[in-house]
């Protein structure tokens, strides 16, 4: 059984937190450049120019692209032949978040939901764990800002609502979100499963390289159709009107119950941050 020490995990999480918040992936950068070529609204073009320049400034000055450095959402794929040694896995991850948000001068935005007292170190992280075959540990960090998280929605549709009902719900969510989630957005859509499964599918679809279609051609077609519809809302960059409201729509599905049709829409701002490492 392969052993991985918790100190390695802490160090990896620390570095990923900083990297994710400062250096946006080339997937988003390419799509913003493409959006700049597509957008016809003068406000939209002006905003996209700023967002592209913002990416360069963040890299050059080594500061985060956005002040909302989010809650640290972490996906773990733990190989079943891995033995984690030296302490608690959860604590190792939270220590990595603590160090990353401190050493990277990232904002500490996490607090008790009722007392509103800040934990001061951006912990705890939101950790999703999956056991997979093999002897590797894959860690993906996707810091999630709440301008966009707040505009997300979940609905338990009726089976009779069908695909049209799904499309309607997604478009209404985008219209209702308007400018708040910092468009151009990325939409993560989870269809099926149970309530929490749909939400998790939506969230997890956002760590896909942005703009990569679902491997199922039928779902990829739906993603394309949804992207066209979302861009027809006219919301545009920053909600000031335009033809680029979203950079991509990602859809993932899972079997559900005969009585149900859960749909979750996780709204992601243009700062679609995600970085990964394999140990």
């Amino acid at each position: 059984m392969r052993q991985i020490h918790v100190d390695t995990i802490t160090k990896t999480v620390r570095d990923l937190c900083i990297d994710a918040c400062i250096d946006i992936g080339s997937d988003v950068e390419c799509l913003l450049n493409k959006a700049r070529d597509t957008e016809v609204s003068p406000f939209g073009q002006n905003i996209l120019d700023q967002l592209i320049e913002n990416i360069d400034i963040a890299r050059r000055e080594q500061i985060p692209i956005c002040q909302d450095t989010g809650m640290a959402v972490i996906f773990l794929e733990i190989g079943q032949d891995v033995h984690i040694i030296g302490g608690s896995l959860t604590e190792a991850i939270n220590e990595g978040v603590r160090q990353g948000y401190r050493d990277g001068y990232l904002r500490k935005s996490v607090l008790d939901p009722l007392t509103r007292i800040n934990t001061q170190d951006n912990t705890p992280a939101i950790i999703h764990t999956e056991i997979v075959p093999g002897n590797k540990l894959k860690i993906t960090i996707a810091p999630k800002g709440f301008g966009s998280e707040n505009m997300s929605a979940l609905k338990m549709l009726k089976p009779s609502d069908g695909i049209e009902g799904i499309k309607h719900f997604i478009i209404e969510t985008v219209k209702n979100a308007g400018a708040n989630p910092c468009p151009p957005i990325v939409l993560g859509v989870g269809i099926g499963g149970t309530m929490e499964k749909a939400a998790l599918l939506a969230k997890k679809s956002l760590i896909r390289e942005v703009g990569t279609p679902n491997s199922d051609p039928e779902i990829a077609k739906l993603e394309e159709e949804l992207l066209t519809l979302v861009n027809e809302t006219g919301v545009g960059p920053q909600g000031l009107g335009g033809i680029v409201t979203a950079l991509a729509v990602h859809v993932d599905t899972y079997p559900t119950h005969i009585a149900g049709l859960p749909v979750a829409v996780n709204v992601q701002c243009h700062a679609a941050r995600h970085k990964e490492a394999v140990l």
Binding site: I55, I57, I65, C182
Partner: peptide, 10 residues
């Protein structure tokens, strides 16, 4: 511009 935190800091 939301999300242009680095640019605005300048």
């Amino acid at each position: 511009t939301g999300g242009a935190g680095a640019l605005l800091s300048q």
